[in-house]
Nucleic acid binder design. Structure first.
Ligand SMILES: NC(=O)c1ccc[n+]([C@@H]2O[C@H](COP(=O)([O-])OP(=O)(O)OC[C@H]3O[C@@H](n4cnc5c(N)ncnc54)[C@H](O)[C@@H]3O)[C@@H](O)[C@H]2O)c1
Ligand SMILES: NC(=O)c1ccc[n+]([C@@H]2O[C@H](COP(=O)([O-])OP(=O)(O)OC[C@H]3O[C@@H](n4cnc5c(N)ncnc54)[C@H](O)[C@@H]3O)[C@@H](O)[C@H]2O)c1
Lengths: 230, 230
DNA sequence: ACGCCCTTGTGAACACGCGCACAAAGTGGG
DNA sequence: CCCACTTTGTGCGCGTGTTCACAAGGGCGT
């Protein structure tokens, strides 16, 4: 009936659950776009590739928003997950390093759709300064502190070469940024209270290679073309 | 009764360990470049941001390659990890979807350095067909099966819009590819035996947003040194 | 109003990974 | 040759996460 008041929920949401909420959210939005009003844990679990009991337990951490015998109300669940993830507010993001990857990120439309606003693009190379990428001018790295303060940047994205990443990270942290997304292949050192997540393509490929090798090792039967590594 | 252990050599390396081996490898190569011959678990652990006992346990899965009282021989460890990960052989990679991200990936130098060779770039858009990106011509998606066979592609990279990802994936699998790296924000459905790893920028940002919101939510003052996740 | 059937929410067992702490092993100095 | 010191390798307890299985809750048809 009347939507319950957003109460202070149990803050102890398991990390593993947090990592899955965005996946559920995406699936729910697809359902919503198709005009579907309710969904069962079984169905949602199937489309997101998780176990249905796990899904229910995940959702139970936000409180109980399902109806037995029916399922979950899609719109309401979208709202609850969004609120839990902090997507009901806008987050400013600054990208440092406007090379191959930085440009791709800047041009990526999916950013803004979910409350993430690219506040600034910064680089050290004078050759790219002043360029306009995705409608934003590329600023100088020395303005990082100003930008963070003025634009209230809360998430810093590092897309510089590895050698520069730690220094850029330090400047982010010094300027008050407490969340960093790092694409450079280095382990960043940060003080407690700062979250770093890394996206490392090279590691992903190496993990795939490991499993690929194992499949090939004495299990050639699964290999219709007998093609091993090149 | 007797567990399926046909192999004398224990191939049961924990997934969590596999995911860290590339990190160790990178640190070791940096040490090697500086001419350092041996390293202790303590030191290597510190530079890779893991617990030293965990590091030792990880390495113990490849056999015992350390010397008590001294540490590990850098070069030998590099070789052992490389071999375990399957990096002593070359792997052919095909990238489908040559847009913002696909171009960035193709232009990324770090690919080739570790035994990954970009064998082909494929796209469906006639506007980009024939373009040369990073020295490679962009081929038509319909040649996927031919390319996979001829180039012995074992890893498929999907950088198309979400709507096309499943279809591209199916074609990869049908052609015999058993390892897929997916950048599109969808859950891919694959038969058993096929490994899929996903890189999802949007999810990473949402996880950061969650923690950022929690930091802001009232607990800012209770925790002077921010014992939160780091 | 009643009972059937569907779906949720969760207790409990299990699997996995982490990190402490320590014995064993090896080094180097005296 | 012995002893003090360093560092590895690992047994073990702990915490987290996953899955099964099922009782309780709720809608809906009759
Ligand atoms: N391109 C990819 O697909 C890809 C894939 C995986 C990882 N990466 C990693 O992402 C990072 C960026 O890759 P890229 O291909 O875009 O490299 P790139 O060389 O094209 O771009 C790097 C940019 O960072 C700028 N830069 C350098 N030092 C800087 C500093 N101190 N402050 C600010 N800006 C600085 C450079 O001017 C350049 O514009 C690298 O660390 C790379 O290893 C890239
Ligand atoms: N650009 C980014 O930084 C970024 C970040 C996160 C996720 N992603 C995801 O990566 C994917 C690619 O992003 P992008 O920015 O490069 O998009 P893009 O639109 O620039 O490029 C997509 C390319 O795929 C091609 N394509 C479309 N359908 C195809 C098909 N059926 N077969 C083969 N090729 C096809 C298009 O012609 C285009 O060249 C998207 O799913 C996006 O959500 C991108």
């Amino acid at each position: 009936m009347t939507p319950p008041e957003p109460r202070p929920r149990d803050r102890g949401i398991p990390e593993a659950t947090v990592a899955r909420l965005p996946v559920y959210l995406r699936a729910l939005q697809a359902l919503d776009d198709r005009g579907i009003l309710t969904v069962s844990s079984e169905h949602l679990a199937e489309t997101t590739g998780v176990n249905s009991a796990k899904l229910r337990k995940d959702l139970s951490h936000l409180g109980s928003y399902g109806t037995r015998g029916v399922g979950y109300e899609v719109e309401y669940l979208i709202y609850q997950i969004s609120r839990e993830l902090g997507l009901t507010q806008d987050w400013s993001v600054a990208i440092v390093g406007v090379g191959n990857l930085g440009r791709a990120l800047a041009n990526y439309g999916g950013f803004g759709t979910r409350g993430f606003r690219i506040a600034a693009l910064l680089d050290a190379d004078t050759a790219v300064l002043g360029d306009t990428v995705a409608g934003l001018p590329v600023g100088h790295i020395d303005t990082l502190e100003d930008v963070v303060r003025k634009e209230k940047v809360s998430i810093g994205v590092i897309a510089t070469p590895a050698a520069a990443a730690q220094e850029v990270c330090d400047r982010f942290v010094e300027a008050g940024v407490t969340s960093v997304l790092n694409f450079a292949p280095v382990v960043l050192n940060v003080p407690p209270g700062v979250d770093v997540r890394k996206v490392d393509l090279s590691i992903e490929l190496q993990i795939l290679a490991f499993h690929e090798q194992r499949k090939a090792d004495g299990y050639a039967g699964l290999d219709p073309f007998g093609k091993g590594p090149a």
